[in-house]
């Protein structure tokens, strides 16, 4: 799925992919843009834009109801891209389309890792609904706040997911033993020697 499109632009993509800490820079960049973009979308969205946003929202809700994390993650990107399209800013659309493509390819982080967490998915859905409602209502200030809050909570969710992975590795090592002691698996004995 990766090497297929855009081999040349992948210089930056490869660089970011092999340095996972850049995910936070990516999310920060997204957050810096998202508030204003959502405010513009609230002010400028045409009926066609709103119909597209509604379709994305419904696809997300359906995937959520079907408990289909992969489908929901894909619909999520389409929803955000639809917001940028509703800003009617061709430069922003071009740049974000590229970034979302990298996101889809898993350059910044493993999205399935986030979406497999039920609590995270529930939170994202509520945030997307709030954002959609504000844009549909033409409420720029609320849309701005909702978008920034959503990106902020994505940062927190990613941080927790990464910590959780690390914690799980520790749990596994503790359960299976370090493999460095004379009688492997002889745990517990160490207390009553």
């Amino acid at each position: 799925m990766n090497a297929k499109n855009a081999p040349r632009t992948d210089v930056l993509a490869n660089l970011l992919r092999s340095h996972p800490e850049t995910a936070y820079d990516y999310l920060e960049f997204r957050r810096l843009l998202a508030g204003q973009a959502s405010a513009f979308a609230a002010e400028r969205a045409t009926p066609e834009d709103l119909a597209r946003l509604r379709a994305c929202m419904e696809a997300m809700e359906a995937a959520h109801a079907n408990d289909d994390p992969a489908e929901e993650a894909a619909a999520d990107i389409n929803f955000h891209m639809a917001i940028y399209k509703a800003t009617h800013n061709a430069v922003m659309v071009h740049i974000m389309a590229r970034l979302f493509e990298l996101l889809r390819q898993g350059v910044f982080f493993d999205r399935s890792d986030l979406y497999l967490r039920r609590g995270v998915r529930d939170g994202f859905l509520r945030q997307h609904q709030a954002l959609f409602k504000a844009i549909s209502a033409g409420d720029a200030a609320t849309a701005r706040g909702a978008a920034e809050a959503h990106l902020q909570s994505t940062v927190e969710a990613l941080r927790e997911a990464q910590k959780a992975d690390h914690r799980r590795d520790i749990s596994i090592r503790r359960r299976d033993g370090s493999g460095l002691v004379a009688k492997a698996g002889d745990k517990g004995k160490r207390l009553d020697k």
Binding site: R8, T9, V11, L12, L15, N89, A90, V91, H94
Partner: peptide, 24 residues
């Protein structure tokens, strides 16, 4: 270059064909 022609090329084309994109 970190972002190749594939990124900047289409952008340059949009701007040349639609000068109002400067505002964007």
């Amino acid at each position: 270059a970190m972002l190749g022609d594939e990124f900047t090329g289409p952008l340059a084309t949009i701007l040349q064909t639609k000068p109002e994109t400067t505002a964007d």
